[in-house]
Amino acid sequence: MPISDIKVRNLKSKDKPYKVSDFEGLFVLVKVSGSKSWRFKYRIDGKEKLLVIGDYPAVSLAQARQTRDAAKAQLAEGIDPNEAKQDEKRARLETKGHTFEKIGAALLEKQRKEGKTKATLDKTEYHLKLANQDFGRRPITEITAPLILKTLRKVEAKGNYETAHRLRARIGSVFRYAVASGIAETDPTYALRDALIRPTRVHRAAITDPKALGRLLNEIEGFDGQSTTRIALKLLALLAQRPGEIRHAKWSEIDFVAKVWAIPADKMKMRRDHVVPLPAQALALLNELRRMNGNGEYLFPSLRTWKRPMSENTLNAALRRMGYSGDEMTAHGFRASFSTLANESGLWHPDAIERALAHVEKNEVRRAYARGDHWEERIKLADWWAGYLDRVKAM
């Protein structure tokens, strides 16, 4: 005869444990201590087994019957309820080990092995730290889009709209890594694509007026700071490469005989090898620099240690020291100066200018046919640009 909740509640302890049956194998075990535990007795493969369901009153009579019915359904399919319970427990423990923080760390390690640049690794680490503060210890399968959005809104509230977008992308990369690893099923950041404030794109300040550029070059010539900083700025203007590529340049990449600077793909933004022709003016500066620190690894080592390149703030700080604000000129702006003035000259094929800047054609069809790198024209372009800078300095 089935028992009632009142009867279970009023069961008293005895000198020995005893059980009171409900029906269809379900019973409650009353222990000497007075605690009551639900059990389900069943047979599978000719053997009698016992499934421990849980203690009363945490598990009510109705809940115990539901568990008993679910176990009977498993038995009908040939599944042992005890084994299924252990499998579920193992899955839960495994899920708890798959936290966002641990998966993010695995992705970061993968990027290190792939040879990602230090700048990329640093940005990944920074973004993961922001995310880990809020939900790093949570199992990745429990992290939802609203939870991620709450973190992104905190970044937005500080006016850092670009950072919020990049953080969303970085969190998404962790989820996609988890999906590929069979740990998660979806990437919840996909639903947040339109949830964030779009940042206003601000182009880096650059001087494109020839006379103003000439004045800047003369200011650099008279720069009273570190000689290596002065040379770095002059090479930045001459070669029109990214400031990070100048700062991280190594002597092993410079070929004085062939008159080229070969930048390996892992240092380039577009992850493609890039060769820069060196005009006579650049070679003269490099020879001057070689007399200063040619025995080291980097062209522009840090003042603190020769094992690291100069700080990323050095070149912009030098421009500020010369009186140029961030709204007037930036270290990256020399590329825009070169691009604008070279294109305005009408002397050079636009593709040669783009190759000189290490830009990649966005149109896939056009890129497939534009396989040449305009090398001979780029050599002439480099010489012309160096001469052009000499002329605007003399204006």
Rank of each mutant, 00 (worst) to 15 (best):
S4F: 14
S4N: 12
I6E: 15
K7Q: 14
L11T: 03
S13H: 13
Y18A: 04
V20P: 06
V30P: 01
S33A: 11
S33T: 13
K41N: 10
K41A: 14
K49C: 06
L51Y: 01
R65S: 06
A70P: 08
A71T: 05
A73P: 15
L75W: 04
G78I: 09
Q86G: 11
Q86R: 14
E88S: 11
K89D: 05
G97C: 10
T99V: 09
E101N: 09
G104Y: 00
L107H: 02
K113M: 15
K113N: 13
G115A: 06
T117G: 12
D122P: 05
T124V: 14
T124F: 12
K129M: 08
L130A: 02
T141D: 05
E142F: 08
P146S: 08
L147R: 15
A164H: 06
A164F: 07
L167I: 05
R168F: 03
R170D: 08
I171P: 00
G172T: 04
G172D: 01
G182P: 04
A184R: 01
A184G: 07
P188Q: 14
I197V: 09
V202Q: 07
V202M: 09
R204T: 07
K211R: 14
R215P: 05
L217Q: 02
E219W: 14
G225R: 06
S227C: 15
R230K: 08
L236T: 10
G244K: 10
I246G: 00
A258H: 15
A258K: 15
W261S: 00
R271M: 02
Q281A: 12
L286T: 01
N287I: 08
E297V: 15
R304F: 07
M310T: 14
M310D: 07
N316G: 06
A318K: 00
R320S: 04
M329K: 06
A331Q: 03
S337V: 02
S339N: 06
T340Y: 07
A342T: 05
L357Q: 08
A358F: 02
H359A: 04
R366Q: 09
R367L: 15
R367N: 15
A368P: 02
D373A: 08
W375S: 10
I379K: 14
L381A: 03
L381E: 02
D383H: 15
W384S: 03
G387S: 11
Y388P: 01
